[in-house]
């Protein structure tokens, strides 16, 4: 039981991270109908920016943990959003209206280029970071097994919830959110009623990148190691999460992320850790076969 609860906690933490990345996929897919293949790299870039920020802060001798976290969060969101914006501008905007596959290839190319750009500029070696937040609380003890909830895990979960609440507010209540939803429904119509479609799409990329940056920072803190290759696998799983939850649905992305996190945690705990990715993908395939629109996606009526 204790072991189970521990895995639950680990899975939720991991799921929160996947969920934040998945939102970027789902939003971009919702608005321009393409898989933003480079989104995983955005997350990786977010992680690197937070590493660099941390190094600057420690070079400056700043040690007050909440301040460090806040600055890391802000800088990684800021810098990574600019990456998100530029990618859209360079690789996707010229291809709007082109065959779907062209945009996908462009995205894959962008992903490869970014990965290697970071490898070139930051080196191929794994970056290891000293833990910023340590310690935690012991929740329960049974059968000689302690359930441990670290402050870091709490931080990740709380931050995710806060971001989700803020983000839902942004989408539901603000004019930007309304424009974004309008473009999702019908881009031509939205532009006719005066929505600046280009800007809205750019903002979508910026928002997605900012959330991915947070995920990147969390991973940096959580695992303490970062390399240029983390984007691919995480991106793939986050996309799986988005599809699992029903692509285009924001709560779905979060739910899908949490599910993927849990599946991974429990599979690693009770079966084999090597095959945890296989488990995640197999479940994706099963969900798609039996519920092709994902868990929270709206059923689609075929237009004939």
């Amino acid at each position: 039981m204790a072991y189970f609860i521990q895995q639950l906690i680990n899975g939720l933490t991991l799921g929160a991270i996947y969920g934040l990345i998945a939102i970027g996929y789902t939003m971009v897919y919702g608005i321009i109908g393409m898989i933003n293949f480079a989104h995983g790299e955005i997350y990786m870039i977010g992680a690197f920016v937070s590493v660099v920020t941390y190094l600057i802060l420690s070079a400056l001798g700043l040690g007050y943990v909440p301040l460090v976290l806040l600055v890391m969060l802000m800088t990684s969101m800021l810098f990574t959003s600019v990456y998100g914006w530029s990618i859209e501008r360079v690789a996707y905007r010229p291809l709007r209206g082109a065959p779907k596959l062209a945009a996908l290839i462009s995205a894959i190319g962008m992903s490869i280029a970014l990965q290697n750009y970071v490898q070139l500029t930051q080196g191929a070696r794994v970056k290891a970071l000293a833990p910023v937040i340590s310690g935690g609380i012991t929740l329960m003890e049974s059968d000689g097994f302690t359930v441990h909830l670290s402050y870091l895990q709490m931080f990740i979960c709380v931050l995710t919830v806060v971001l989700m609440v803020g983000f839902s507010f942004l989408i539901d209540k603000t004019s930007l959110g309304r424009q974004q939803r309008a473009c999702e429904q019908d881009r031509t119509m939205a532009s006719l009623v005066g929505v600046n479609v280009d800007r809205t799409i750019s903002m979508t990329f910026v928002m997605g990148a900012a959330l991915a940056a947070v995920a990147g920072m969390m991973v940096t803190l959580y695992y303490g190691v970062v390399d240029f290759y983390i984007g691919f696998v995480a991106g793939m799983k986050a996309f799986t999460a988005a599809v699992l939850g029903g692509i285009g649905s924001l709560p779905g992305a979060m739910l899908g992320g949490v599910l993927i996190g849990l599946i991974e945690a429990f599979w690693s705990a009770y079966f084999t850790i090597e095959y945890k990715d296989v488990a995640a993908f197999s479940i994706l395939v099963l969900v798609l076969i039996f519920r092709p629109t994902g868990l929270l996606g709206k059923p689609e009526i075929e237009k004939v």
């Binding site: 082109a98 462009s106 894959i108 190319g109 962008m110 280029a113």
Partner: peptide
């Protein structure tokens, strides 16, 4: 890196 960039450029 150039390969990826070329893919984007060509597309």
């Amino acid at each position: 890196f150039l390969f990826g960039a070329a893919m984007v450029l060509i597309m």
